[in-house]
Design a protein around this nucleic acid. Structure first.
Length: 442
RNA sequence: GGCCCGUUCUUCCAGUGGUUCAGGAAACUGGCCCCUCAAGCCGGUAACGCGGGUUCAAAUCCCGCACGGGUCACCA
């Protein structure tokens, strides 16, 4: 709906109010009003507009109109009256009409103000509940009075708390991005944006950040995770339930369990809900969710069955380390060619360069790889343990060297899973390449 | 500044006069497990803003104070 389409409705309501003496045409120019306001402030008095135009006669108004003098229409606040609503969240809230300036309801150009249009609309559309953020609570005084003047049955109002910035009590606002960037709670999310979005060609945390809904979508968060986190902000089902699906929320939601105090977004907790719902997802859904990220990053080509199979195996190995779909980008080692594998310098040095016996053991193990049959994780696991025993070494002495040489990293999925996914040839090729990068030994 | 709203662990919630020396989750932390990182399991730390009332009994009701927030447009 557009206000511009409903002008006739608003006009009729204004005319009625005017005819009934519940509104008046105000010919005072805005500058005069501002001066009045400034004077009131200077005198430390609460501001109330001066109703000069109320003394105008019909003849005065006709003359002013003939002169082309513009006017607005103001709603005449009953200053001898109190207004009250029974808010579904906050309970009984009262205001004193004596303290409320007369609000403009129609501009001098003939258009209408939100605070008025919404009242006309709500009545005409038979709205039963107005549920909105707490920052609108003050507006409700005027709206309630307007409903009363128009003879409407007012809707039930429910003013729910807004969401605050993490670690703050202030309304979460896009205008504060720069401050938020440095907040300890949000810093990780900004940093992650800088890691992930450039790979996807989406800019960085300056273009997409955690105060924007799009951030979560582009980062590969699940709607169910976001929804769960948001649902638990300012509302609860009971004293225990944390994990909730949309259906659960729909079935159980009630206004009377909404908390009154504003709540801060907690990225850690969001992450925890997200993790839960990601773990619930069947493997094929995870594959479908991750593939677009790999493609957008240029790591894989169009999806065929073979690629889906590979991605499925990788995701299965990643397991619960996959929190959001874009996390798949942390496992590039499975998608790059052997000669393009990058090494984590620190791990490479610690596990290969500085580990005196590592190269020798690696060479031996690589030979063993040739005979592993089938080349799967359990068999590899057994073989390595045998190898460890046969050589009288500790498992740590070989495992890290294998990991860094085949995956390029010191951390990652289970080593035997990684080896099985890569397959015999690629494992041997990668080990050979890593060894070739070490200084020649006698 | 006026008006309005709010105030339970670090955070998000539970609690509507006694079954609560306040319960759950996240975070943090100790341990187990372990090829790394996670996850998982077991355990731990940690709160009723302050002051007055009312009552046999108050986190829960009342009053005041303090602090925090929202809002004060011919914006929506």
């Amino acid at each position: 709906y557009y206000q511009s389409q409903r002008k006739d409705l608003y006009k009729a309501a204004v005319d009625r109010l005017l005819a009934e003496g519940k509104a008046f045409r105000d010919y005072d120019p805005p500058e005069l009003m501002q001066a009045d306001r400034a004077a009131a402030e200077a005198a430390k008095q609460p501001f109330l507009n001066i109703r000069r135009s109320l003394d105008l006669t019909d003849a005065d108004r006709a003359r002013l109109d003939a002169e082309g003098k513009p006017h607005v229409v103001r709603f005449l606040i009953p200053r001898d009256q109190k207004v009250a609503i029974d808010d579904a969240v906050r309970g009984h809230v009262e205001w004193d009409g004596a303290l409320m300036p007369d609000p403009v309801i129609m501009r001098s150009n003939g258009t209408f103000l939100y605070n008025f249009a919404t009242v006309v609309d709500d009545a005409q559309m038979e709205i039963t509940h107005v549920i909105r953020a707490e920052e609108h609570l003050t507006n409700t005084a005027v709206q309630a009075l307007l409903h009363q003047a128009l003879g409407n049955t007012p809707p039930v109002f429910a003013h729910i708390p807004f969401i605050t910035s993490p670690g703050s009590t202030k309304k979460l606002s896009k205008r504060d991005v720069d401050k938020l960037r440095n907040s300890p709670q949000l810093k990780k999310m900004f940093d992650r944006a800088d890691e992930v979005f450039p790979q996807l060609g989406l800019g960085d945390s300056k273009t997409l950040n955690p105060v924007m809904v799009e951030y979560y979508e582009r980062m590969g968060y699940l709607p169910s995770g976001i929804l769960n986190a948001l649902s638990r902000l300012g509302w609860s089902l009971d004293d225990k339930t944390e994990i909730m699906s949309l259906d659960t929320v729909i079935q159980n939601f009630s206004l009377d369990r909404i908390v009154k105090a504003p709540a801060g977004l907690d990225p850690e907790k969001l992450q925890s809900y997200q993790q839960h719902w990601m773990n619930q997802l069947p493997l094929e859904d995870k594959v479908a969710g991750c593939l677009p990220f790999l493609q957008q990053a240029g790591l894989v080509a169009d999806a065929d069955d073979a690629l889906r199979g590979l991605v499925g195996k990788v995701i299965a190995a990643i397991g619960d380390r996959l929190r959001v779909f874009s996390d798949i980008l942390d496992y590039k080692e499975f998608f790059v060619s052997d000669d393009k594998l990058a090494y984590d310098e620190k791990a490479f040095t610690q596990r290969l360069r500085d580990a005196a016996e590592a190269p020798g053991l690696l060479r031996l193990l690589s030979e063993k790889l040739a005979t592993v049959e089938p080349f799967d994780a359990p068999t590899l696991d057994a073989m390595v343990h045998q190898f460890v025993e046969a050589n009288g070494i500790k498992i740590a002495q070989i495992v890290h060297a294998v990991r860094i040489s085949t995956t390029g990293r010191g951390v990652g999925v289970g080593l035997f899973d990684a080896l099985a996914i890569l397959g015999r040839d690629r494992c041997q090729a990668r080990i050979a390449r890593a060894l070739s990068l070490l200084p020649a030994q006698s």
